[in-house]
Design a protein around this nucleic acid. Structure first.
Length: 609
RNA sequence: GCGCCCGUAGCUCAACUGGAUAGAGUAUUCGGCUACGAACCGAAAGGUUGCAGGUUCGACCCCUGCCGGGCGCACCA
């Protein structure tokens, strides 16, 4: 090899044996924070603190202070009226076996700081070498659990609009995060396929259907028909009566109406699927309201029998006397005309998910405005299942805010209509195409289109996922697609540049030649390596809180550290040990960025951009 | 009226659920391409965390009261 001297060879051998030693004897597990947590608990047990419920409180630290910190001594000392700093010192004295991997120090009133040694960083990076390996090493917090995620849930016979974006995007990320932590995930599209709108729609369908439009633009045609039927019914009571009869016929099993209804749903779902394909979504089941149609009677009966439901103003309702609002605000589970509503079908749904799918948890990815409804639903299910001896699944409302325009009002078109999701994604791809073209005027158009399709859609997804789902978010094309700051494009750019290095050096990025890599040495190498080691913590935090933005923020920081490293340290250098360790950093950055982006539901399959 | 959510740099957002000097991007100013992609990197500047109290070793975070905004509250989901 170029420039190989006996000293360098010896260095490489030494590094290799060091690495093997680390791997075989004392390499750290995937989740370093968990390892520290266990070690601290052991130390506390030896000091007799465990009986007094000592908690280590291990956190990712500010890099200036270390890699991880344990704050548990502070809370414990406060409770026990001890000197926190002295207590922390006692604990540190018990941590001798960690000193091979960490520089341990005390700071402030009693923080214990852990800084990973470069050789340990190297060993960790060498061990976790592929997306599969990251998955298998991930904290298996939900191993063996079954979760159902209820998301997207549009109404059939209507376009999906911007209001459906967040549920779809956040829901898919939640699914992937749950699956990554070991859960079996059932993706359920709880579609609205059984509303009162079908009377007017079927009335118009029978009389005014444009067969050509049904093929080319089915959802537009249904919307046209619905409007037509609705207007006609308003203008003419006779039409209204006919439309109501169509609805009655449908609900009583009339064959012709059922065929039309089925046709409308099938066509709607096929159109939805074009959106889902772009967003990387594939549902396992689509159990909409119609599915639960014949399952609500049992809900009425059971809730009445166990004394939860009562008649009020002609409706069947549930009150929660212990609750400040729901003591007076009823949960209406059957309307006074005897018909079901969404409370009825949501209760039937909860029962079905428990009985049929035997779920351990259910996540409802639904607008924050439905908090009251879901609170009432969860309270009712809890009492109902308690009285009937059923196991209660963990019920989570994964709520999110509104998508706003730049005027801080809900996002609409200029004339006040809802923005169709299809148009929004088309525009994202178009804007990305214009940008890609301006940056790469010489690449072939097909390649630019391919890049733009990935970058455009990813930008929309990531804009949503990169911020706390609880708050409203302002949709601004320029910030989203201008590709600066915490955006999908910035992350994908890092991916593309890493691939570019492997391409230039004619190396296979799946088989990087990293043998003989030495421990990270330059400040930029060390900073990057230290950031990469925290991947499991970011995933764990995002998963346990069901908040994908924690992972997004982490990936952005990884990409930032990588860019700094890239600008400072050339990868393809002559010194084989330096080159190997930088290739190692590049490759591990690549797999963590890709794994993380895949967890968020984004595509990363681009070579250039 | 009752209740839920929100208020952080000019703007858009973070702050690991009570931890260290509240951090990023953007806009502004300055610097960096004959080193693997400058869609990049580095630096400066920018703050009484809506206001006023309280709790404690420690508060953007918890409690109380105000101010401002959004959203729910009897049969549309």
């Amino acid at each position: 090899m170029l420039g190989d001297s006996p000293i360098q060879s010896a260095k490489i051998l030494l590094a290799q044996s060091q690495a093997q030693f680390l791997n075989h004897l004392m390499n750290l597990p995937f989740n370093v924070a968990n390892h520290l947590d266990a070690a601290l608990r052991n130390a506390a047990a030896r000091l007799g603190l465990t009986e007094r419920s000592f908690q280590p409180e291990v956190r990712v630290a500010d890099p200036a202070n270390g890699d991880f910190q344990a704050n548990g001594a502070l809370a414990f000392a406060k409770r026990e009226k001890q000197n926190p700093r002295a207590l922390a010192q006692q604990i540190v004295d018990q941590l001798g076996q960690l000193q091979g991997h960490f520089d341990i120090s005390l700071a402030g009133p009693g923080f214990i700081n852990f800084r990973l040694k470069p050789a340990t960083l190297l060993g960790w990076l060498q061990t976790y070498d592929s997306e599969e390996h990251l998955q298998s090493g991930a904290a298996s917090a939900r191993d063996g659990q079954t979760w159902i995620v209820d998301y997207s849930s549009p109404n059939t016979a209507k376009q999906m609009h911007v209001g459906h974006l967040r549920s779809a995007v956040i829901g898919e990320a939640i699914c992937r995060l749950l699956a990554f932590s070991g859960a079996k995930v059932i993706r359920d599209n709880h579609i609205g396929d059984w509303g009162t709108q079908f009377g007017k729609l079927i009335w118009a369908y029978k009389r005014h259907l444009d067969a050509a439009a049904l093929v080319s633009e089915p959802l537009e045609e249904f919307e046209r028909l619905y409007k037509l039927g609705s207007n006609a019914a308003e203008a003419d009571p006779a039409v209204l009566a006919e439309a109501q009869q169509e609805l009655v016929n449908l609900q009583s099993g009339d064959a012709e109406n059922h065929v039309i209804w089925k046709k409308i749903n099938d066509v709607s779902l096929a159109a939805f699927q074009q959106i889902y394909d772009q967003l990387g979504i594939k549902f396992d089941v689509m159990l909409g309201e119609s599915f639960y149609n014949d399952k609500v009677e049992r809900v009425y009966r059971e809730l009445a029998e166990c004394g939860l439901a009562q008649e009020s103003q002609g409706a069947l309702v549930v009150f929660h006397p212990e609750h400040p609002r729901f003591a007076k605000q009823p949960f209406i589970i059957r309307k006074k005309d005897g018909a079901a509503n969404y409370a009825s079908s949501d209760l039937a749904t909860a029962l079905h998910r428990t009985e049929h799918f035997k779920v351990d948890g259910a996540a409802y990815v639904v607008d924050f405005r439905q908090s009251d409804h879901l609170d009432q639903l969860f309270l009712t299910v809890e009492k109902w299942f308690g009285k009937t001896g059923r196991k209660l699944p963990q019920l989570e409302h994964v709520d999110f805010g509104t998508v706003l325009g730049e005027n801080n009002k809900p996002l609409k078109t200029r004339d006040g209509a809802n923005i169709r999701l299809k148009d929004l994604l088309d525009e994202a791809r178009l804007r990305a195409f214009q940008l890609v073209s301006s940056k790469n005027p010489d690449s072939p158009e097909t390649e630019r289109r391919g890049i733009a399709d990935i970058v455009g859609v990813a930008s929309v997804q990531y804009a949503d996922l990169s911020q706390n789902r609880s708050s409203d978010y302002v949709f601004a094309w320029d910030r989203m697609i201008s590709l600066e700051g915490n955006t999908a494009a910035y992350l994908l750019y890092a991916v593309a540049r890493i691939r570019s290095i492997f391409r230039k050096a004619e190396l296979d990025p799946t088989q990087p030649p990293v043998a003989g890599a030495t421990a990270p040495e330059t400040p930029q190498e060390i900073a990057l390596a230290r950031k990469l080691v925290k991947f499991p913590n970011a995933v764990q935090l995002a998963t346990s809180t069901l908040r994908p933005h924690f992972l997004g923020l982490y990936l952005y920081e990884v990409a930032g550290e990588y860019s700094t490293f890239y600008a400072a340290d050339k990868v393809i250098v002559d010194d084989p040990a330096v080159r190997a360790r930088r290739l190692l950093l590049c490759h591990r950055t690549l797999i963590m960025l890709e794994t993380g982006l895949h967890l968020l539901g984004l595509r990363t399959d681009l070579e250039r951009m």
